[in-house]
């Protein structure tokens, strides 16, 4: 029952929650369970900044089953304003609009579902900044 794992992950997945080291300030997304990799310091959950820039990306043409309906889609390697780096799907962007270096912001979207009768899994995606 993947729904249970997905439920357990929902808060950090919905709210862009990462870990922050109380000693050295290092950030991690997704959050880590134990201590800071860099200094061994204690970690606390923190909501990460929602804006960042695109460091790299790909367009997925051969998608896993749960994402096949979305193919081709873009997955970005993003650096948030605080330096945290993460992977997330990009949305509301055309294939010819995506550029390395573009400003992006977090949005809340359906990620995938288990068929018409199954659970809907929501989470963070990123879109070009709307101001």
């Amino acid at each position: 029952m993947p729904e249970i794992t997905e439920w357990r992950d929902r808060l950090w997945r919905y709210r862009l929650v990462g870990s922050k080291c109380l000693s050295c300030g290092a950030r991690y997304y997704p959050p880590r369970n134990s201590s800071c990799i860099k200094c061994g310091g204690e970690l606390v959950d923190v909501e990460l900044p929602r804006r960042g820039k695109l460091l790299s990306y790909t367009v997925i043409y051969q998608a896993p089953g749960i994402y096949r309906f979305a193919s081709p889609y873009i997955v970005g390697f993003i650096e948030l304003e605080d330096g945290t780096r993460l992977f997330a799907m990009l949305t509301d962007v055309e294939l010819d609009e995506v550029k390395v270096g573009m400003e992006v912001e977090a949005t809340f979207r359906k990620l995938y579902t288990y068929g018409d009768s199954g659970h809907i899994v929501y989470g963070i995606k990123f879109r070009p900044l709307v101001t």
Partner: peptide, 16 residues
């Protein structure tokens, strides 16, 4: 709506 939007994600954006 885009394939990844529904009335709930729209509500989320407006609320935020």
């Amino acid at each position: 709506p885009s394939y990844d939007e529904d009335s709930l994600t729209i509500a989320y954006e407006a609320c935020r």
